[in-house]
């Protein structure tokens, strides 16, 4: 664990500075505008998500962080009044293209929600659901293994290994959130979107999740919304600051937290507003 922590810290140092600017982004937002009915929630957001990195979205409440996150796997489609303009690509493929199936997109871009939302089924079935519907595991043994590794990665296996068949809704709030993370990584998506995954967790569970995020970075691209400056600083390589629907500033986490370009960013991270 301490090693991980060190690693996370060293990432912020100029030597292992996040991604060279010329790397191809995993996801790319180009002039993204989002409207809820008449009301515009995002204004021309240009944001690149680099592969195998943790991108943190920060900003005051209601500034559009969740909205942007939900654009990335088209979860906004289910909101009737929501309209998205602009272009978002995943591996240079337009995800809002009419030929693209949002269902398949969501198998590639997974999501962990702000409020834990386990299915009212057993812990085992919660985690096994994704692999089952995507056919990634054939035999019972395969699924057993996916369930165990996913729960272990989410730091939950030890706590629940004796009651895998009990309902997931019977867990504590923090355990439920880790179950949701295990459920999301069981599908093995390329990108994982996390909307304030630790807002219901105690510091120990939070530390576990942060450690997990750092581990996941090897194989996944992660976008995380957080209200905790410390968390953004600890886990992310890049940070994007949103304010009133605008992307004010994006850059290496180190730079945003030590030397922001915009006075609004400065104000927010030093706690003057937000």
């Amino acid at each position: 664990m301490s090693e991980k922590k060190k690693m996370a810290k060293s990432d912020a140092s100029p030597a292992s500075k996040a991604t060279p600017p010329n790397a191809t982004p995993k996801m790319k937002g180009d002039k993204v505008k989002v409207f809820y009915g008449e009301k515009q929630a995002l204004m021309d957001v240009d944001l690149d998500i680099q592969p195998n990195e943790v991108t943190a979205l920060i900003g005051p409440s209601g500034c559009g962080k969740s909205t942007f996150l939900r654009c990335l796997n088209r979860m906004n489609d289910v909101i009737d009044i929501c309209r998205v303009e602009g272009k978002i690509t995943l591996d240079d493929e337009d995800i809002y293209d009419s030929t693209l199936d949002p269902v398949q997109l969501r198998a590639r871009v997974g999501m962990v929600f702000q409020k834990p939302n386990p299915f009212p089924k057993s812990i085992y079935d919660n985690v096994a659901y994704g692999p089952r519907i995507h056919g990634t595991a054939q035999s019972k043994a395969d699924i057993d293994e996916i369930v165990e590794t996913s729960l272990t990665k989410a730091g939950l296996f030890g706590e629940v290994k004796d009651r895998l068949l009990e309902p997931g809704t019977g867990l504590s709030g923090g355990q439920q959130q880790r179950l949701c993370i295990a459920r999301a990584i069981a599908v093995n998506p390329e990108v994982i979107l996390m909307d304030e995954p630790c807002s219901a967790l105690d510091p120990i569970a939070t530390a576990k999740i942060e450690e997990l995020i750092d581990e996941l970075r090897e194989n996944y691209t992660i976008v995380i919304v957080t209200h905790s400056m410390q968390q953004a600083a600890r886990v992310s390589q890049r940070t994007a600051f949103f304010h009133l629907g605008e992307l004010v500033e994006v850059g290496d986490t180190e730079q945003i937290f030590t030397n922001p370009n915009d006075s609004r960013t400065q104000g927010y991270i030093t706690g003057r507003f937000g």
Partner: peptide, 14 residues
């Protein structure tokens, strides 16, 4: 609850 639908959709369920 809508959160159940979101959870399933988010996992790539049709």
């Amino acid at each position: 609850p809508p959160s159940i639908r979101e959870a399933a959709l988010g996992l790539g369920a049709s």
